[in-house]
Design a protein around this nucleic acid. Structure first.
Lengths: 236, 236
DNA sequence: GCCCTAAAAGAACCCCGTTCATTTTAACTG
DNA sequence: CAGTTAAAATGAACGGGGTTCTTTTAGGGC
């Protein structure tokens, strides 16, 4: 980059600095800001998606963002909405409840897996009310009800599965070798099991996080089926 | 509080400001700093546990902390160690593998549940190597191996369960009514199921997060048992 | 044409983690 | 015991963060 004199510096995008005052053509919108935020998170990580950085990317001063977005938290909530819309729920119309639940969970996690550094950010913020997430829940709960799950238990099942999905998504944003014990001799069995797993996964080309997610998902769904059977036997 | 003149202000704890230079008696230690950090997180939340706030609480300038702690991330890693030590693993010496796994998972989550606002913080940071967490893993993996789990699968089971535990811990730090759809008529079945569950839980005095955790844990362990049986049948 | 409002710039405020130089003291060393 | 080195505090500063407030300009409705 060429050096800019301090009293003649210009923002990244526009060649000439914009005058103060409302511009002739609209420059910003909530949608544009939110999408830029998600793009920066994907391209350069969470830390590069500050209000100031987003503003610079859009060739705008930070304070201009506040004409369209209430603040950083609301912005991140918008990003969550943006990607939540991409979780397909059509499996509930085609598959039996347990298979549909598994398909939904995989999609759910895949969407987060596409934006790994975002997971930690979303984990911190409470859900916004009136969110599209709720209509996703509607599809899940309707299917569970149709399958015979009592109204009293359906949401509990949903939350349990969602906890697993989010926990697995967090696992995704951690480095693959996070658990690597290295050359320690005080944890021999863990070391050996760690290496045995690494070897197996290398053979099949599977990511560690994927193996754990699939195993846990299978186990959870199988357990749910057993639970439903037991509910039907005793409760009815 | 009375107003303090700007050139006569004093820190919170000591009545008189400490002179510059090394004090006669040691004032700080890594242990003291870490425990103060955890206490502030518990009492006033994550945001109140900044380096500056911790320093003020200890009657010290922020820069003094860096003589004992490398930085904020290492400090939080120390807090994780502090509470990880409190997860009991003795169940693996007394109970069969599946019951022990469940007991361990409950303790694991209980420890985090005691510090709800900490969960989001820990979720973001990668594990420090050489941590006590690894010796906890050793106990889990040894038991799984003794129970017949192949070395190639033990760590995968561990990670799957841990993902569920951490996801459930995150759920704990969210407000209880986060999912409440409120008076919406576009999600009728979810609304009805939400209210049915709320009524059931109110009857038995159970927290929603606890119900989901127990259900999911039961399902996971049951699914793991089925998985192990299937492994024994086909693989051997 | 006037007025209110929207949307930008720009300046400022207070927070944060961190680094550096300085000062004082403790601990070690010959 | 004197001298040196290392440790542990202060104080000042840096660069970054989210946010707010004022000012300026433009658009749209009566």
């Amino acid at each position: 980059m060429m050096a800019n004199r301090n009293d003649d510096d210009s923002a990244a995008a526009p060649a000439t600095r914009r005058r103060v005052g409302r511009p002739r053509a609209g420059v910003l919108s909530k949608r544009l800001i939110t999408e830029t935020c998600l793009r920066l998170i994907d391209e350069r990580g969470t830390e590069a998606a500050s209000m100031r950085a987003i503003a610079a990317e859009l060739g705008v001063r930070p304070s201009a963002l506040y004409n369209h977005v209430a603040g950083y938290n609301e912005l991140i909530a918008g990003v969550r909405e943006l990607i939540s819309e991409r979780i397909p729920v059509d499996a509930f119309e085609r598959e039996p409840w347990d298979a549909a639940l598994a398909t939904w969970a995989r999609h759910y996690r895949d969407v987060f897996a596409a934006h790994p550094s975002l997971v930690a950010l979303l984990a911190v913020l409470p859900l916004a009310e009136e969110s599209v997430t709720t209509v996703m829940y509607e599809a899940v709960i309707a299917k569970l009800g149709d399958a015979g799950w009592p109204d009293t238990h359906a949401v509990t099942v949903l939350v349990a599965l969602e906890s697993f999905v989010l926990g697995s998504a967090l696992d995704l944003s951690a480095p693959d070798d996070m658990l690597d014990p290295g050359p320690r001799d005080d944890v021999p069995r863990f070391s050996s099991a760690y290496r045995a797993r690494a070897a197996l996964l290398a053979e099949t080309g599977t990511r560690p996080a994927d193996a754990s997610f699939e195993l846990g998902l299978r186990a959870l769904i199988a357990g749910f089926s057993a639970e439903l059977a037991s509910l039907a036997a005793t409760g009815r």
